[in-house]
Amino acid sequence: MTRFQILKLPTHTDGRGSLTVLEGALPFPVVRSYWIYGADGQTRGGHRHRFTRQALVAVSGAVIIYMNDGVGEASVELMDPGQCLLVEPKDWHTMTFGEGAVLLVMSSHPYDRSEYIDEPYV
């Protein structure tokens, strides 16, 4: 069990495969989306935000997300494309990529480097 919120996304499965729906599932409007891939064995991130909320989905492979909100910490393994980890502005996070992993990131705000906080909690 983790203190960080993981959403179970609506997924429809039949003999033809699975379809996962994001429409109406996130608690914020998506302003920016991107995906990270080709990062096998690499750790990325290492920051938190002033305003931006994010939703992370491992659409392929496995990604371990280390989270620390200044009160508690946890490592969350995303490996099911029907799961979505919410990253709040206060959440310091890093993302470590398994082989062939693809991580979809949806953000509440456009990119603004001045909005990043690079110092971890002590």
Rank of each mutant, 00 (worst) to 15 (best):
D40P: 00
F97G: 05
T43Y: 02
Y116Q: 12
I6C: 00
Y116F: 10
I64T: 08
D40K: 02
Q54G: 13
A62N: 03
E115H: 01
N68L: 12
S75P: 00
H109E: 15
S60W: 03
K8L: 12
E99S: 09
Q83D: 11
D69L: 07
L85C: 03
M95Y: 03
V57I: 15
I64G: 03
C84D: 07
D112M: 07
L85V: 02
G70M: 10
V105W: 01
R44S: 08
D112T: 12
L85G: 02
M95N: 03
V59S: 08
L19N: 06
P120T: 15
R3Y: 04
R48A: 14
R53M: 05
V71K: 06
V59F: 00
F4D: 14
P27Y: 05
D14L: 08
L7Y: 01
D118F: 04
Q83F: 03
G100M: 04
L19H: 01
Y121C: 15
V31K: 13
E88F: 02
E99W: 00
R44C: 08
E99D: 13
S33L: 06
P89N: 05
Q5V: 09
P27W: 08
F28N: 12
Y66S: 15
G72H: 10
D40E: 13
S33T: 14
T43A: 12
P110V: 15
R113I: 09
G46A: 08
A101W: 01
